[in-house]
Computed example of a mutant assay.
Amino acid sequence: MNHVTSTADDTAREERGPVLSIVVPVLNEEKAIEPFLDRTVASLEATAKLHPSVCNSYEIVFVDDGSTDATVAAVIAARQRFGDIRLVMLSRSFGKDAALSAGLEFARGAAVIPIDVDLQDPPELFSSLVGKWLDGAKVVNAIRRDRKRESFGKRFTAAAFYRAYNILAERPIPREAGDFRLLDRDVVDTLKRLPERIRFMKGLVSWAGFPASEVYYDRDERVSGRSRWRFWQLWNFALDGITSSTTTPLRIWTYFGGAMAFLAFGYALFIVSTTLLLGRATPGYASLITVVLILGGLNLVALGILGEYIGRIFNEVKGRPLYVVSSTVGFDDIRQPSTDVT
C-alpha cells in the first residue's frame, strides 16, 4: 500500500513538473557547455540544501538558436553526466529573445531562471534569487553592480540605452538588469500569452507589473569565446526595445512639428511686416536655404521613425511564428507544448 502511494506521489510530482527551470539560450557555445553545467548543477544542489522544501527538483532547458558548431552534440553528451537536461533545437537562428521565448514555452518549473551560458552571470546567485522568490516576489531581477570588466564603449552605450528607454517608455525597466532573473510561473504564463512577434523581454516583464525584488552582483568575464553582439545589432536591439514599448517618439515629433509650424508662421508674419514697412523684401538666400535644408532633414528623420513603426506593424500583421522548432531532446516522457501558433 505504501508503495502504491509513493508511486502516485511520484506521478503527481512529474505531472506538476520541477520546481526550478533553468533556461539557457545558446548559439555556437560548444566550449562553454561543460564549465557552465559544472557550476550550475553545483549551485542548484547548494540551493536545494538551503531551501529543501521547494528546491527538490530542477531541469535545465537549453535552446539552440541555430548553432553551426558542436553545441548540440555537447549538450547531448552532457545529458550522460548531469541530471535533467533537455534540449530544444530551432530550425535556424531567430534571435536571442525568440530563443528565450521558446525556453519559457517549454520550461515547466514553478520558477524559471533564464541565464546565458557564458558565465558572466554567476549561477551561484540562484540561492539568493530563490530566497527573494520565497519571500513573495514574483520577479527577482539580478542587477549588475560592477561592469568594469566590459569595454568602455559597451558600458557607455548600455547606460545611454537604459536612460533613454526609461525616459521614453511608459513602464521603466530596472537599470543594469539583463535577462538573468527569476520569474514566477504566473509571470511566465503571462508572457506566453503575449502575442507580439518583436519581443523585448525586459520590457515585457516590466509591463506585466508583478511584484519585483532585486539582488546585486558583479559581472564576470566570459569563460570562452567572445560576444557576438556588434554595434549595429545593439542599435537594432535598442530600436526594437523602444518602438515595441512606447509610441513616445511619434508623439515627440507631433509636438516638434507643431512648434516648427508656429515658428514658421511667426517668421512669415515677420517677412510680410518688413516688406510692407520698408517696401522691400528682406535679403537672405543663405539663411533661407539653410532653413529649408534643416526642415527637410528633420522631415526625413520623422519619416524614418514613422517607417520603423510601420515596419513593425507589417511584421505583426503577417502573423508568422516567433520561432520554428526542428526537434527536441529529453521531452519524450512529458507532454510538449504546442508550437503551432507561437
Score class of each variant (00 low, 15 high):
residue 1 M to W: 08
residue 9 D to Q: 09
residue 17 G to L: 02
residue 21 S to M: 01
residue 22 I to W: 08
residue 24 V to Q: 05
residue 26 V to F: 11
residue 37 L to R: 10
residue 41 V to M: 10
residue 51 H to Q: 00
residue 61 V to H: 04
residue 67 S to V: 12
residue 68 T to I: 10
residue 68 T to R: 14
residue 71 T to I: 04
residue 75 V to C: 04
residue 75 V to A: 12
residue 76 I to F: 08
residue 76 I to K: 13
residue 78 A to K: 11
residue 78 A to C: 08
residue 81 R to L: 12
residue 82 F to V: 05
residue 83 G to W: 03
residue 87 L to Q: 13
residue 89 M to Q: 12
residue 89 M to A: 06
residue 90 L to Q: 04
residue 92 R to K: 15
residue 92 R to T: 15
residue 93 S to F: 00
residue 94 F to D: 10
residue 100 L to M: 15
residue 100 L to S: 14
residue 102 A to I: 07
residue 103 G to R: 03
residue 105 E to L: 10
residue 105 E to S: 13
residue 107 A to C: 12
residue 107 A to Q: 05
residue 108 R to M: 02
residue 110 A to L: 13
residue 113 I to R: 01
residue 115 I to V: 14
residue 115 I to D: 01
residue 117 V to M: 06
residue 120 Q to L: 04
residue 126 F to C: 07
residue 127 S to N: 10
residue 130 V to L: 15
residue 132 K to D: 07
residue 134 L to E: 03
residue 134 L to Q: 01
residue 136 G to P: 05
residue 140 V to T: 07
residue 141 N to C: 04
residue 142 A to H: 11
residue 142 A to W: 04
residue 143 I to N: 07
residue 151 S to H: 12
residue 160 A to E: 11
residue 166 N to F: 02
residue 171 R to T: 15
residue 172 P to I: 09
residue 176 E to C: 09
residue 179 D to S: 14
residue 183 L to M: 09
residue 183 L to W: 11
residue 185 R to T: 11
residue 187 V to D: 09
residue 187 V to E: 05
residue 199 R to L: 11
residue 201 M to N: 12
residue 204 L to K: 13
residue 206 S to D: 05
residue 206 S to P: 02
residue 207 W to P: 01
residue 211 P to R: 06
residue 211 P to L: 02
residue 212 A to N: 00
residue 214 E to Y: 13
residue 214 E to H: 13
residue 218 D to Y: 06
residue 221 E to F: 01
residue 224 S to E: 12
residue 234 L to E: 06
residue 240 D to F: 12
residue 242 I to A: 03
residue 251 R to H: 10
residue 251 R to V: 05
residue 257 G to V: 00
residue 258 G to R: 14
residue 259 A to P: 00
residue 259 A to S: 04
residue 261 A to H: 01
residue 266 G to A: 13
residue 267 Y to S: 14
residue 268 A to N: 05
residue 270 F to A: 09
residue 270 F to K: 07
residue 280 R to P: 00
residue 285 Y to E: 13
residue 286 A to P: 02
residue 289 I to P: 00
residue 291 V to D: 02
residue 292 V to R: 01
residue 295 L to S: 09
residue 298 L to G: 07
residue 298 L to F: 14
residue 304 G to S: 15
residue 308 E to R: 14
residue 312 R to M: 06
residue 313 I to K: 12
residue 314 F to E: 10
residue 315 N to Y: 08
residue 322 L to I: 06
residue 322 L to Q: 10
residue 323 Y to D: 08
residue 324 V to L: 07
residue 325 V to A: 01
residue 327 S to A: 12
residue 329 V to G: 00
residue 330 G to L: 07
residue 337 P to C: 03
residue 341 V to S: 10
residue 342 T to C: 10
residue 342 T to G: 05
